[in-house]
């Protein structure tokens, strides 16, 4: 690997984490009043905002209406100032379109869409600051927003990216690690049933290592799910105090 040592002999990574350690996750639900559901999530230096509108009547072309379940409509965008190099367009480029599609797939697997036939649920996510793991941070933020909107889900969807360096899986990659030529794998998990909502790997990896990598990713996702659960419980407690119950 060119110059950068991603995992030191002592077992520490560039930012001082251990191999299986996640970045610090901080989140808040109900950030905005106008949307049906909203959440803000920071995972290390990656920051994302997610907003949910719906379920509501189909907007735009009615031909997309599904008779037995709700349509999930996702848009992923990045603030023009979110990356080190300024972006010219916040959304509409290939990468964003692909990301929107992945998010849609993920949430179709998790949201109980059959409860809302002929309707639409909009999930919009925005990256405010990007430092690796954009997809996973978006999924985690969107999960909280969907919960805030009161839309039933099978389980939390938690996502995490893991990389493979020196025969060791690294959990929750940051930007420097993502760029370092690591073969990485993104996984979205419904932790309780252990169901996988999305799995993506674009790099070369020996088949024998795949299982350890998936195992590490699932452990990391379960870690994230614990944090999210705590955030939701905290939020509900605060809200119930406010409403005087």
């Amino acid at each position: 690997m060119a110059g950068l040592e991603l995992l030191s002999d002592q077992g520490y990574r560039i930012d001082g984490r251990k191999a299986t350690e996640l970045r610090k996750v901080q989140a808040r639900m109900g950030v905005f009043a106008q949307a049906d559901g909203s959440a803000y999530l920071e995972q290390g230096n990656t920051k994302a905002l997610a907003v949910v509108y719906g379920p509501h009547e189909m907007r735009g072309s009615r031909s997309r209406t599904l008779h037995d379940r709700a349509v999930i409509n996702c848009q992923y965008s990045m603030a023009t100032f979110s990356t080190a190099e300024r972006k010219r367009r916040p959304h509409g480029d290939r990468k964003s379109t692909e990301m929107s599609l992945h998010l849609k797939q993920t949430f179709e697997a998790a949201v109980m869409t059959q409860l809302y036939p002929r309707s639409q649920i909009d999930i919009y996510v925005k990256i405010l600051q990007s430092d690796g793991g954009n997809y996973s941070v978006c999924v985690n933020a969107a999960t909280l927003a969907v919960i805030d909107a009161g839309i039933p889900m099978r389980d939390y969807v938690c996502a995490c990216t893991v990389g493979f360096v020196d025969e060791t899986p690294l959990a929750d990659l940051c930007y420097a690690e993502e760029g370092g030529g690591v073969s990485s794998l993104a996984l979205a998990l419904l932790p309780r049933g252990g169901q996988i909502a999305l799995l993506q790997m674009d790099a070369r990896l020996h088949q024998d290592h795949l299982e350890t990598l998936m195992e590490a990713a699932m452990t990391a996702c379960k870690g994230v799910s614990k944090v999210l659960d705590e955030v939701v419980r905290q939020h509900l407690q605060e809200v119930s105090v406010l409403t005087g119950e």
Binding site: F32, Q34, A35, S38, L49, V51, Y53, R59, N73, Q75, S77, A79, T80, P90, G92, D122, Y124, K126
Partner: peptide, 16 residues
């Protein structure tokens, strides 16, 4: 200057 009317604000801003 660039003003990004994001879909976060209202679903009408989605796409273009």
């Amino acid at each position: 200057f660039f003003v990004d009317c994001s879909a976060n604000a209202t679903p009408e801003f989605e796409g273009r």
